[in-house]
Nucleic acid binder design. Structure first.
Length: 328
RNA sequence: GCGGGGGUCUGGGU
């Protein structure tokens, strides 16, 4: 079962839920009976694929077959519904779980608070947060991040800051993701300066801006009519050795188009194509007489290695990655 | 000792 669990979990996380389900069926056909863990894996896979209804069906099936869900199973189900479902559904589910003996832990609270913020009920989110504290559960970095993000999205910058302060007073150290949530909020409100200074602050605290950080900043600049700034951030990002993702390109291309800079957008589009195609990149950068296709590039590398020129082969690969071109 | 649960990013006639 453990082996199947690893594989099925892998399929689920790659978004290949159908393959996961097939393998699950096959496993049962082979006479291996599923345990709580593997049920939980498939259940959370279904939730990830936005199939919470099927996930609930699986939960029922699991119980009917005499396999008892544990707190992790319940949490997985709860989180699925919290992310996509309506709030009534969340509380309905919660009630039925509690009737089955489920008690709330830090992760359950996180999910519920997340769900409340999602539908804009931040007052209630806040009171659930206080409830958590009263239960002598120590709030951790993730709940704080949810609170901070929730408040900033609701435009409640002050409340968000109160959370930041409370968090630091308690000795909880923010990570990149936590900063990102705040930066996002600032960007959405047009507080680009504050967002930038947060970015600087995070570097001082050993948290390094990642692709997502830059995406937020670029998005913020674009949405506030500062496309030039967005372009600068993009360049800075590359200099910092941070790989632009598809999202980065889309964000900036969209911003450029909306600002009427169609030519720039086109250039960026080419750059994006080059970035996903190592051979094309080499062709352009080395002015080789012929464009290598993927295969001949691979052959080239292989030949160099065969003849002991590892260093040279390695250099080519490094050159690619240095220029944000990821070899396949 | 091995497998499962909570937080951050773009666009698409709404």
């Amino acid at each position: 079962v453990a082996t199947y669990s690893i594989l099925i979990d892998c399929y689920c996380k790659l978004g290949k839920i159908e393959d996961a389900l097939n393998m699950f069926d096959k496993m049962i056909e082979n006479g291996i009976s599923p345990d709580t863990i593997i049920y939980t894996i498939v259940l959370s896979g279904l939730c990830l694929a936005n199939r919470t209804y099927d996930a609930q069906g699986l939960l029922d099936k699991m119980i009917n077959s005499g396999c008892l869900p544990d707190s992790i199973t319940y949490n997985a189900m709860l989180s699925g519904v919290c992310k996509t479902g309506g709030i009534d559904e969340v509380f309905g589910l919660l009630k039925s779980f509690q009737d089955q003996g489920y008690t709330l832990g830090i992760k359950s609270y996180s999910c519920i608070i997340y769900a409340l913020f999602r539908v804009g009920r931040f007052e209630e989110a806040n009171s659930w947060f206080r409830k958590l504290c009263e239960e002598n559960i120590t709030p951790d970095l993730k709940v704080y991040t949810i609170m901070i993000q929730g408040f900033t999205e609701a435009g409640k910058i002050k409340d968000a800051w109160t959370m930041v302060q409370e968090m630091t007073e308690r000795g909880v150290v923010p990570d990149t993701q936590c900063y990102n949530a705040l930066i996002r909020g600032f960007c959405e409100m047009g507080l680009l300066e504050d967002a930038q200074s947060l970015k600087r602050e995070m570097s001082e605290n050993n948290c390094f801006p990642d692709t997502c950080t830059y995406n937020h900043l670029i998005y913020g600049a674009c949405r506030n009519g500062k496309v030039e700034e967005a372009k600068q951030i993009f360049e800075e990002m590359e200099k910092a050795g941070c790989f632009p993702s598809v999202i980065t390109f889309n964000t900036l291309i969209d911003g450029l188009c909306k600002a009427g800079e169609f030519e720039e957008a086109r250039l960026l589009f080419y750059k994006m194509e080059i970035g996903t195609n190592p051979s094309l990149f080499l062709h352009l950068s080395q002015c080789t007489d012929r464009a290598l296709d993927r295969e001949s590039l691979q052959n080239l590398i292989a030949r160099l290695c065969d003849s002991g020129l590892y260093l040279k082969a390695y250099r080519i690969l490094i050159k690619l990655t240095d220029n944000c071109v990821l070899p396949d």
